[in-house]
Write a protein that binds this DNA or RNA. Structure first.
Lengths: 213, 213
DNA sequence: AGCAAATTTAAACACTTGACTAAATATGGT
DNA sequence: ACCATATTTAGTCAAGTGTTTAAATTTGCT
């Protein structure tokens, strides 16, 4: 008699509602009352199931992080010889395509991409979660690859390259509303995302004189 | 006897305090009381001088926008022949260096760069100000240049290029705290910014097979 | 069906927020 | 020095915040 079935249902409803509201209003503009109302649950359930508001937000971010952890960068780079120029070029492509897929594929709820990078704006538990479990480990892989491609790169220089790779995707995610309105689009088209991926990939491959694969 | 001297002094103190607090806490976490306390002014002065909180925020953003408007992109591109490959390469460099200078040069208060892109997160008067007076006009120039460089580019494709140019700078500005902590730096070094500029410039020049200038 | 535990509910809590008011003060031209 | 007025001050307001409480209800095993 540990837990009742209804427990998981309301917890998921609250997480989903919180995610949508964060995407719409911003992380620091959502109230427990708004979340409970959208989820059609009582305010008290938030504190009963998650302890407090932050506990709920942790689970919201956790939902996104688990999707990223399910496809670690290591998998994309396995079976590649990072000393081979051709494989180095493939590695660049794999890293960019993976990140783009995780952010823009429609297999996850819409709010994922609009929520996740908001946590990087304010220091706190949420940022620490995303940084320690996603950002830092993934950057380590990318920096390692870049220093294989060009052994003369310092850590700072390799990090700068890493950020120039990721930044376009981050901006398209975090400023989605502004970007879409500037593009007069309702949502990113598959072609647009593909073209942006292509820019990022071939830019980096050309910069390092890698084969264009 | 229109206005007294003290008026401008307190107005500037309030704008400066608001800017610093927005940079530290985030746009939506700043209260009129915190602003007044940091400025060492009375809360009522905010409503007396600016009408309401939003009126003060408008002036904060205005301070930043005026710096950008003082050096229009047109000036950087004047005397360049946008049909000439060499001048096209120079134009790319000028556009990127101008934006980097506006964001990272130390001639303006520290908070400018951490404040300005926050307004792009939420729709409202502040975003509309920055978009209509800075973003849209500047993007028009960049897109025009890119379509001269490669006439086959559609508007969406040219816009994607524009964003890949700007994104790294935006991310370094808006996520400054997280980036600096990942780099174990107290502030961006001149060398780091210069290296990032170099990446962005030569990446774009190589992508379009322009001379590397 | 009965019953103990898990869950939901509504009301209240203390606190912060942006805004407003009326009185007190400071300013600068005369 | 005077005085009209620009500015500052302190106090109050209603509305919204996250949290807590205790009672009511639902759940699932015996």
């Amino acid at each position: 008699m540990a837990t009742y079935r209804s427990s998981e249902v309301t917890k998921n409803a609250l997480i989903e509602a919180a995610g949508q509201l964060i995407a719409d209003l911003g992380l620091s503009c959502v109230s427990v009352r708004a979340i409970a109302m959208l989820a059609q649950e009582n305010i008290g359930t938030i504190h009963y199931h998650f302890g407090n508001k932050e506990g709920l937000l942790v689970e919201v971010i956790n939902k996104v992080i688990e999707r990223w952890e399910a496809v670690p960068v290591e998998n994309e780079l396995a079976q590649l010889d990072l000393n081979d120029r051709h494989d180095q070029a493939v590695a660049i492509r794999r890293i960019i395509e993976r990140m783009s897929r995780l952010i823009f594929s429609s297999e996850a709820p819409d709010w994922h991409r609009q929520v996740i990078y908001q946590v990087m704006q304010h220091t706190g538990i949420l940022q620490e979660m995303f940084r320690s479990r996603v950002i830092t480990p993934e950057n380590r892989q990318t920096i390692h690859l870049l220093q294989r491609i060009d052994p003369s790169l310092s850590y700072e220089q390799a990090y700068a390259h890493t950020l120039t790779i990721q930044s376009a995707l981050i901006v398209h995610a975090d400023y989605q509303n502004a970007v879409l309105s500037e593009l007069s689009m309702a949502d990113y088209s598959r072609e647009y995302i593909a073209y942006m991926e292509n820019i990022l990939i071939s830019q980096k491959q050309k910069f390092f004189d890698l084969p264009l694969v």
